[in-house]
Design a binder for these strands. Structure first.
Length: 184
DNA sequence: CTTACAAGAATAT
DNA sequence: ATATTCTTGTAAG
């Protein structure tokens, strides 16, 4: 665990690399403020274990899910930890739609735009994904191009690809996602 | 105001 | 099948 002002972070080793959780605790009120993914190929020089650090219980539970196969984080854990109200308007609707994409399925930028009520805003959805503060919780890796190609990913496309593979999404020979794996 | 995008569709080759 | 062009909503400068 590392401390920067009032924001504290912990780095969790995961199959896809490393996942850093950042939170604040103002007056006992723990609030997740960000998640960042990175390809932790080399042994992290200063990645302390969760054993001794003073990490809030909800953060520990989240870290456990991440270490234990990167499943979806249950709402029971994220409830009260993430202030979903901080996302207003278009961005909020986009994130809400993305959170409905089930594990093992993908959706397209255009589809999400439609769900968010701005059917022409596919590119704007892409931008919202690019600035997503909570990857995994808001599963932006499940948003791909309409033709099945991957699109982009802030933390590097190989992480997106590995996350999708981990979730059972299948690619065709031309490395495009099968039509069957599109949600809607 | 202009520019940059993690897009998409239409059109051309 | 791929390449090019045009339109597009948002955010950031």
């Amino acid at each position: 665990m590392k401390e920067n002002g009032s924001v504290q972070t912990v780095t969790v080793p995961a199959s896809i690399g490393r996942v850093e959780l950042a939170w604040t605790s103002d007056g006992g009120r723990v609030r997740l403020v960000g998640i960042s993914l990175s390809e932790g190929l080399a042994r992290p020089p200063r990645c302390k274990s969760l054993g001794t650090a003073r990490v809030p219980r909800a953060i520990r539970r989240m870290a456990a899910v991440i270490q234990d196969g990167l499943g979806d984080i249950p709402g029971r854990i994220t409830d009260g930890l993430v202030d979903w109200g901080m996302f207003a308007g278009f961005q909020g609707k986009v994130y809400e739609a993305v959170r409905r994409i089930p594990r093992g399925k993908v959706s397209s930028y255009g589809d999400i735009a439609r769900h968010a009520g701005s059917p022409q805003a596919a590119r704007a959805v892409g931008h919202a994904m690019a600035v997503n503060p909570f990857p995994l919780l808001i599963p932006c890796h499940r948003v791909v191009r309409a033709d099945g190609s991957l699109g982009g990913f802030a933390a590097g496309l190989s992480i997106k690809e590995r996350l999708l593979k981990l979730e059972g999404v299948m690619m065709n020979a031309d490395s495009r996602i099968r039509r069957d794996d599109f949600w809607s």
